[in-house]
């Protein structure tokens, strides 16, 4: 399945990924260094912040309580489309997902 990262410089990273991995893991595996993900997905760092393309918002379950709490800690501005990519696990219906990487993570 396909996953696209819109980078802060305007360029795009389009990657082939497998369902079951998180968007954060896919970013790390494909060298998207705008996703820092210091804590490796333990919901401690908020350095895996992304803005989800609104076209996909309805396909995602809303953030759980602990993700919502950590979303208040992002370095870049928090928007309604903000998510922590370590909590977004890819499923078949998310094929083609587009997420934007914010300017700042740390």
């Amino acid at each position: 399945m396909k996953l696209t990262f819109r980078r802060p410089d305007g360029s795009h990273g389009v990657h082939d990924t497998d369902p079951g991995t998180s968007v954060m893991e896919a970013a790390v595996a494909h060298g998207e260094d705008g996703i820092v993900a210091e804590c490796g997905g333990s919901l401690m760092c908020a350095t895996c912040h992304v803005y989800v393309d609104p076209a996909f918002s309805d396909l995602l379950a809303p953030p759980a309580e602990d993700e919502a709490e950590m979303l208040t800690c992002t370095a870049a501005e928090r928007r309604p489309t903000s998510r922590l990519s370590c909590q977004l696990v890819l499923t078949d219906d998310l094929d083609g997902l587009v997420v934007e990487i914010p300017e700042e993570q740390v």
């Binding site: 790390v28 804590c39 490796g40 997905g41 333990s42 401690m44 760092c45």
Partner: peptide
């Protein structure tokens, strides 16, 4: 970043 030097799970280092 998946290393275990700060632990893992409920006790993962709160000071990391």
């Amino acid at each position: 970043s998946d290393h275990l030097a700060f632990g893992h799970g409920v006790h993962a280092c709160v000071g990391m």
